[in-house]
Amino acid sequence: MEELRAARRVMGQGSVPAGEAYTVELRRHYRSPVDEVWDAVTNPERLRRWLKPVSGDLRPGGRYELDGGEHGEILRCEPPQVLTVSWLYGPEADAWPGTSEVEVRLSASPDGGTELELVHAAVLADPSFPTYGPGAGGVGWDLALLGLSRLLAGGDVVDHEEFETSPEGREFARRSAAAWGEAHLAAGGEPEQVAAAVEATTRFYVPDPE
């Protein structure tokens, strides 16, 4: 579970065009140089190996769609430092453009590696937040960045479905949910609410096999 310990998690607040938002932030150091990490997060052939297959007009102002149903617009692209996209799910999401945004920021570290910051901002009215807290999106991003780490280390394509149902994947998700609970507490969450959110997130990502 070195990957979980390597990442720093923060829950905060921000804004998107639809209004005030809560944010989940992941910060992670990679030994690979910035150009290598930028290519991994923007090159469709490499993106599919750690996240999901992507299609669409992959230029600023263009629209993209991931194989899992996530879709949106490329809002900002400044190679090799910043990529911002709207992040929506399902056809009904088009009625509320900008309710969720993901931004990836890259910067060079003194050792020649890369500091990655991923910020996912979603409107406070998102019905999943009161139930799941920051783990609603945070656990999914922990799983995704695990795939990115394996790709940068020269690993094979990550089969997310296979991994998430394996004993290793279930334990990873369980510990990720707990880690996001700690970030929620650090942000001022009420202990009882945080405990309930961690339990709900764990049940979602680690359902009873029976």
Results as ranks from 00 to 15, higher is better:
residue 152 L to E: 02
residue 88 L to G: 07
residue 195 A to D: 11
residue 57 D to C: 04
residue 44 P to F: 11
residue 163 F to M: 07
residue 170 R to E: 06
residue 128 S to K: 13
residue 158 V to I: 11
residue 84 T to P: 03
residue 110 P to L: 13
residue 73 E to D: 02
residue 82 V to A: 04
residue 53 P to I: 04
residue 131 T to H: 02
residue 103 E to V: 15
residue 5 R to P: 00
residue 93 A to E: 02
residue 59 R to S: 05
residue 60 P to E: 00
residue 132 Y to M: 13
residue 23 T to Q: 15
residue 185 L to A: 10
residue 47 L to K: 11
residue 185 L to P: 00
residue 98 G to C: 10
residue 9 R to K: 06
residue 207 P to W: 15
residue 39 D to Q: 15
residue 208 D to K: 10
residue 188 G to S: 08
residue 13 Q to W: 11
residue 14 G to W: 11
residue 110 P to Q: 11
residue 127 P to T: 11
residue 166 S to W: 06
residue 57 D to H: 08
residue 49 R to F: 12
residue 130 P to M: 15
residue 134 P to N: 09
residue 38 W to K: 06
residue 191 P to V: 04
residue 2 E to I: 07
residue 153 A to R: 13
residue 92 E to V: 11
residue 201 T to A: 15
residue 193 Q to M: 05
residue 1 M to W: 03
residue 20 E to F: 09
residue 54 V to D: 00
residue 183 A to E: 00
residue 39 D to W: 10
residue 203 R to G: 05
residue 83 L to R: 13
residue 62 G to Y: 01
residue 101 E to P: 12
residue 49 R to S: 06
residue 175 R to V: 00
residue 172 F to L: 09
residue 17 P to D: 00
residue 55 S to R: 14
residue 74 I to M: 10
residue 62 G to I: 00
residue 61 G to Q: 01
residue 144 A to P: 02
residue 192 E to R: 15
residue 146 L to W: 08
residue 25 E to G: 04
residue 161 E to A: 14
residue 85 V to M: 09
residue 151 L to H: 08
residue 28 R to N: 01
residue 153 A to Y: 07
residue 24 V to K: 08
residue 9 R to Y: 12
residue 167 P to L: 08
residue 191 P to Q: 02
residue 96 W to A: 14
residue 132 Y to P: 12
residue 154 G to N: 11
residue 88 L to N: 02
residue 44 P to H: 02
residue 52 K to D: 05
residue 116 L to W: 03
residue 77 C to E: 06
residue 75 L to C: 02
residue 22 Y to L: 13
residue 80 P to D: 09
residue 81 Q to I: 09
residue 42 T to R: 08
residue 100 S to T: 15
residue 171 E to Q: 12
residue 116 L to P: 05
residue 33 P to T: 10
residue 23 T to I: 07
residue 51 L to Y: 07
residue 4 L to P: 01
residue 87 W to I: 00
residue 34 V to N: 10
residue 44 P to R: 04
residue 6 A to E: 03
residue 178 A to P: 00
residue 50 W to E: 02
residue 40 A to F: 09
residue 4 L to M: 06
residue 125 A to F: 11
residue 176 S to D: 05
residue 22 Y to H: 13
residue 162 E to I: 05
residue 97 P to G: 06
residue 181 G to I: 06
residue 160 H to C: 02
residue 26 L to Y: 03
